[in-house]
Design a protein around this nucleic acid. Structure first.
Lengths: 168, 168
DNA sequence: CTTGATAGGCTAACGCTGTTAGCTTACGGT
DNA sequence: ACCGTAAGCTAACAGCGTTAGCCTATCAAG
């Protein structure tokens, strides 16, 4: 494991343990045993570091979706579970403009493939599913549903609609 | 219009003209003719200011939805149009934890009412619709769809599904 | 065996952020 | 006439991402 990967791993650790506002260059430097300016020997900017984290997140989410079985219901469950388990990484993965030029080739496609497959190959339907799942997850993570709202029921309704007309 | 409202109006102006990172206390102070620390005579913190902006945004979005005609399709179109026209306010409205205690009573309900109505009074379905619309808008604003993706088609598919079984 | 380049660390500092402390001034009520 | 409060000000603080410039260890070439 080279220094760059060590730094990314430490950043993931900080993100998961203490949330996104805790991920500062000084704290990250401390976690890997160097001062903040030295991090710039390995990453040109914090943005480049975040892009590396985004790639890590996309690959991990893609793997989780891959393992989900391929049904709309299983996919939805896996998507929500992963997002709730890694809220900061999820935010990074979905809400940062994708720096496609510095993303390892195939990462984006690999994450998307299970969704397209569950949509029967229809990319419009796949994007509709992605949007619905992302919206529900994002609102839940942001704490925007009223207290006591039955979020499971909203998911069930969404899954019901997207299961119609899709071969299971 | 009291000083507080003036400040909120100026903040909206900055947000729309120059984006969220341009909304700093010093710049906002300059826009209303005072220094940054003086803003704290009117708002306890930047967060309280953002809460006021959130309320403004929710009221405005709610009004736009109210005018949309009440069909699933019209509602979806109005939602997307408003969000794309006011991306920073939309982000504030939907992605900040809602400080319900300092929100004017009825604002949240008023924004939600047209959606619940279009869902035939079924709140689970209404939340599913909200999630789907929010997800599509959020991904579009974040630039997460591949270049050239047919976003209209994804919306059309979403609208088609949510129109099924809903009295129009 | 020396030389020179490079990689990777360091400190000091810059300009920016939100925010606080403490001072001043003008206005309104008793 | 006095006092309290509202609302402005300057100076400053800690933390942020980032840059400049310095130092040292490693390593290949002459």
């Amino acid at each position: 494991m080279n220094r760059r990967d060590e730094i990314v791993a430490a950043a993931v650790g900080i993100l998961e343990a203490a949330g996104p506002e805790a991920l500062t260059m000084r704290r990250l430097g401390h976690a890997v045993g160097m001062r903040a300016p030295s991090l710039y020997k390995h990453f040109a900017s914090k943005d480049e570091l975040l892009a590396a984290l985004q790639e890590h997140a996309l690959a991990d989410l893609g793997a989780a979706l891959e393992r989900s079985g391929g049904t709309v219901c299983g996919l939805a469950r896996a998507y929500r579970t992963w997002a709730l388990a890694h809220p900061a990484l999820y935010d990074l993965a979905m809400r940062h403009p994708l720096a496609r030029h510095r993303l390892a080739p195939g990462v984006e496609e690999a994450a998307a493939a299970p969704v397209v497959s569950a949509a029967g190959g229809d990319v419009d339907r796949a994007r509709a599913m992605w949007g619905a799942a992302h919206g529900l997850v994002d609102l839940e993570l942001a704490g925007r549903f009223p207290p006591g709202a039955d979020i499971d029921a909203a998911w069930a309704e969404t899954i019901r609609l997207f299961s119609m007309g899709t071969a299971q």
